[in-house]
Design a protein around this nucleic acid. Sequence first.
RNA 1: GCCCGGGUGGCGGAAUCGGCCAGACGCGGAGGGCUUAAACCCCUCUGGUCCUCGUGACCAUGUGGGUUCGAAUCCCACCCCGGGCACCA
Length: 812
Amino acid sequence: MAEAYDVQQIERKWQARWREEGTYQVEADDPRPPFYSLCMYPYPSGAAHQGHVRNYTFGDLIVRHRTMHGHAVLSPMGFDSFGLPAENAAIKTGVHPRPFTDARIAELKESIERLGAVYDWRREVRSHDPEYIRWTQWIFLRLLEAGLAYRKQAPVNWCPGCQTVLANEQVLPDGTCERSGDVVVKRDLEQWFFKITAYADQLLDDLDTLDWPERVKVMQRNWIGRSEGAEFDLDVVGHDGTTIRVFTTRPDTSFGMTYVVLAPEHPLVPEITTDDQRAAVEAFVAKVSTESEVERQSTEGPVEKRGVFTGTYAVNPFDDEQVPIYLADYVLMGYGTGAIMAVPGEDQRDWDFAKAYDLPIIRTVQPPEGWEGEAYTGDGPAINSRWLDGLDKEAAIAKAVGFLEERGIGRQTVNYRLRDWLLSRQRFWGCPIPVVYCPEHGAVPVPDDQLPVLAPDDVEFRPTGESPLRSHEGFLRTTCPTCGAPATRETDTMDTFVDSSWYFLRFADPWSTMAPFDRDVVAHWLPVDQYIGGIEHAILHLMYARFFTKALADLGVAPKELREPFARLFTQGMIRMGGSKMSKSKGNLVAPAKYFDTVGADALRLFHLFVGPPADDVDWSEQTDEVIEGCGRFLGRVWRLATGEVGPVEGAKPPVGDLERDTHRLIAKVTEGYDRWSYNTAVAACMEFTNLLYKHAQAGAPVDGGVDALLLLMAPMAPHVTAELWERRHPGQHVHAQAWPTFDPALATALTETMVVQVNGKVRDRIDVDAGVDEAEMERLALASPKVQAALDGATPRKVVARPPRLVNLVR
RNA sequence: GCCCGGGUGGCGGAAUCGGCCAGACGCGGAGGGCUUAAACCCCUCUGGUCCUCGUGACCAUGUGGGUUCGAAUCCCACCCCGGGCACCA
């Protein structure tokens, strides 16, 4: 009697073996072709949740699969260990964020190991390690030198809940904080920015070179928001020498300009406002400035309240007509020039405003026949536009731009929705910004040899709205690196997205002490061949990491030719429960440990692979436990088959078909399933094949070849049980060190096929035929069938459609 | 409002190119075997309706049209669900 399948014992045994033998440690000089597989490094919030399990199941499967294909696979893991939750816990409990975070990392690591996922742990990176902080700060200083980091006073997003400023990307469309849900307010603060806009065009264009999900690329394109147009100056009537510069994407409609609108914050507002309008204008500006982003962006409320006349006029350079200058809250100072020419005929917002303020509307593009809408934004011949009349949109734009350039009052230009990345955070648990403020020399970079700048441990955590660093004299007081005079340190820390913008580079060479990483080693492993993570990072992390990679390549820190960090991206679906995302904050977590302790990691992994397409969301339902148990049952069947427990059963008949051919067909099917991320069908094929092997074994037929193939194909999916069974069947061998099985295409195709015979598209008979059957033979066989004769009812088919070898359709 | 996905049995899902009576595989359900009994395990059945109960007929992939010898798959219109963007001039 074979030994029972002791899941716990076997999984522990192999996890220890992989750890002790360092099976998945690789070096850059490995002769095998390199493959870099990476899962987004996690924020350590405690034991792994199902989202992690799903992510690392896919990642680990790829590591093992590529290894069996003969690659040297770089499989690193680390922790995005700076961030708010640890600091909030510190405020609540008084425990320093470091021990708190280290404890969470230990928990997470333990559950990752229990999943059986293998990594080269020597390369582990933690954002809060002093060495990692050193190089994050070093990179900041290089960006600062290059003019890609700068400081400016700016109206910023302040989250009262998190007590910090946020990046634009961290403010949700409804104006609330993506983390705390509090309404974000505007504050004027001096802050550090990264000049990501300098890379706007490259970030946009290089998307075309990436093998990424189309929807992620679309989201990034929209976020960058490139729009081509023109800028030009309008003279202000009664203010000699004062001009207003406007941005438009439709210079071809300039003859339809019936007013001009400035953003309420526009610097020219005080100068051009007339005395009799001053009170109204000031009241309006005051109202807008106190409004939250939500209120201002709301399209609710009467349009009449959304603007005010300045009392002054501007001159349209196209026809020298004077048009009134308004302020309106829908024009934003942060985009374009903060001023627009309003063309109500071709812009719906302008149309609505014009109606509300009784301003004229002139159509300058002929709408199509039967047009009943208001503003017409489509293409058509220009009208009411003098020398542009009759031209289509493209030609009219070119001619209008030419006019502006000739007169020297404007030019063709491009605008982006993308803003520079605000990286200052008024928090403690983050990477300190390595800058000193000297009364004499201003903001002075901390010299490289004084890095890392580390936060002190003896700080008090209080929800003051300022980093605890601010009130720590020992940290705050320093001397100017330039002149030695007393100076103060920058007390803000960096957005944690800075840490995650280069960790994948550090993984290639985490031992580097002279630089964040060695360029040649990075060139060997990067770009990441397969990156896997959640769709929630479609914009923020992925955009920032791309920016860092490009900037570091241009600075000569990273290899020059490394233009993109992640060649292929896969975004897995979310785990949902009761309609909402499964998450710690929603309190609906189903801990993986429960399954590790019972059915085992292999069964849970198999479930995640089998439940549906990897990109789709998973609904965690009442039935899920039963499905997971079903996966465990299947592994039990494989176990019994592979240990020879399944023997002849009285009266069992062997299944039809040749097992060798079926095995080759399985290899073909599963291999293809891996290649196109169709793990659910690959698992299904393995289950089906196992059922088939059972029938052979019960009929007393040999199944060893089939079982071995099955174990190899399942090795990346269920690594523990396949490793154990392989070792028992082939003493001294390791299943994951075997080559991926190959199939003979000649054997993978069936000898005979079932030919379907249709009459008028309805199946009337099925006939087993030789796989090489030709059309004439198919027709002959079809006509010979009594069932087909009955269906034809004596008629002669007027048409025969034959698709060898599987289908023939007789049309009567 | 705009841009992407998606709608298939009681449930998760399958069906690479328009072609093997659509529903693989699994869960759930029904029946049987093993067992003193139960669990485990093994086997069979399981979209709907109808009947003469069969190697039977008809219906069926959100709805309505269309193309085709043939449509879950392609085209048009509509409905519903999910996601992204949304005063960006």
